[in-house]
Amino acid sequence: MTRDADTVRAFVDGELDDLTAARIAREAQGDPELASAIAAERRLRDTLGTHFNRVLAEPVPERLSAPVEAARKVVSLDEARQRRFGFNARTLRWAGPAMAAALVLAVAIPALQRGGQTESRDSLTFAANDLAQALDTQLVADQRQGSETRVLLSFADQDGTLCRGFARADLSGIACREDGGWHLRVQRDGVDLSANDYRQAGSVDSAILAAAQDMAAGPALDAAGERAARASGWKRR
């Protein structure tokens, strides 16, 4: 019944309503063919993500960022002028819709994200709540059984930004400490941390370690390095 490819794809893309999505998830449990179609689509998403996300970790060439930085200076001059003279008509005209849109975003986005462990700002995904706290405080060395987030490693990228690979039941990935918080540069599926599913955990771990290897400028931080990094608030080195 649910064999048609468009529905399977829409399911994987999160485009179905909750009811239909739940029905398909149920059907997939008793239908190996459907389950494998879903798995193939998910793998394709992952494969594409791994391939194209490497760009995100690279430093942006100056010829691309320089014009934006230059324009930003001009804009902030305008803003300074505006602060002196109060709001102009343009600001007022847009303020209402902009605030309404911001409110819609604020309400809509947490619901879309997985379990509230991430939030979207400027269309980038940042760690939130428990995940953000774990990344701030938890060290690889003093990991306890039963904690919800497992930190796999910490390292510095080519810019000296500190990044941490992690795994949770709802998602795993690599987050890097930027001005706005822990920016998720790599996002992957969750891992069942409670069950003894070493195979599944192992494949996600190794995917993250491989991604980390591509991003890292040197070896992973040792225990002392991690403690020092935490003490400095994970500031860029």
Partner: peptide
């Protein structure tokens, strides 16, 4: 500026 990596992707 924050969008540049995504635009590059």
């Amino acid at each position: 500026v924050a969008l540049l990596p995504r635009l590059r992707r």
